[in-house]
Design a protein around this nucleic acid. Structure first.
Length: 215
DNA sequence: ACATTAAGTGATT
DNA sequence: AATCACTTAATGT
């Protein structure tokens, strides 16, 4: 137990330099739970109540939105050193989740029980700043995806998605199926296949079964 | 070898 | 660009 607490304090210092106050770091290590998720594992589903705010230490998380008909749409990735802004607003209002989050890779995070999140806002300046900065960063990412959906053609969206995916996994070899891509982009599988073929002809990409290499 | 799943194709709207 | 109705290719059992 002592060991885990010391470990958490160190991880916070390493990955969240903006959370500077020593007392806050201590509190985080006391109440935070170190959690691990395997690649592909569901973290939060629609309708579930959020009881933890995650501080991402390692790996990345994919954030998705789903409409009434069950069409899914990729929103953005969360990476190490970030947190989920949606979880703040959800847990503050004690609302159900509007989004689904899935571990993109093997992921480690510190879960902060929600009852502390609110109190810390008033108690710690650096926590407040951290929360505000997270909101700002998520807003930017969200606006970018809105732009992409509203103004860009499918081929540009696909390429953008592939680049992001390669970036968060730091691997230009992307392991996925055309069907999965189509699902995230809310497009048909055939469309994705055809666009990928074009990209391959242009030399942007190399295709294999269950794999796409960005060149 | 056979079944299953991923990917490619062409026609239609 | 979506949907359909296939075909072909790769993989697992």
């Amino acid at each position: 137990m002592r060991v885990e607490q010391a470990g958490i304090a160190k991880l916070v210092q390493q990955h969240f330099p903006d959370i500077a106050e020593k007392k806050l770091q201590e509190e985080i290590s006391q109440v935070g739970k170190l959690m691990h998720f395997k690649a592909g594992q569901l973290i939060q589903d629609y309708g579930s109540y959020i009881k933890m705010v995650p501080l991402l230490i390692k790996g990345s998380i994919k954030v998705l939105r789903e409409d009434e008909e069950g069409n899914e749409l990729f929103l953005y990735y969360l990476e190490a050193g970030e947190t989920c802004s949606m979880s703040f607003s959800c847990c503050m209002m004690n609302k159900q989740s509007d989004i689904r989050t899935v571990a993109e890779e093997d992921t480690t995070l510190i879960g902060i029980p929600i009852r502390y999140v609110d109190a810390w806002m008033r108690q710690y300046q650096s926590w407040k700043n951290f929360v505000m900065q997270s909101y700002d960063a998520r807003m930017k990412a969200l606006v970018q995806t809105i732009d992409s959906i509203a103004f860009k053609k499918m081929d540009e969206r696909l390429l953008e998605y592939l680049k992001q995916k390669a970036k968060v996994t730091s691997n230009s070899m992307i392991q996925t199926t055309h069907q999965a891509l189509a699902y995230d982009l809310n497009a048909s599988r055939e469309a994705v296949s055809r666009l990928l073929k074009q990209l391959e002809k242009q030399g942007t990409v190399k295709l294999g079964r269950n794999s796409i290499e960005l060149l």
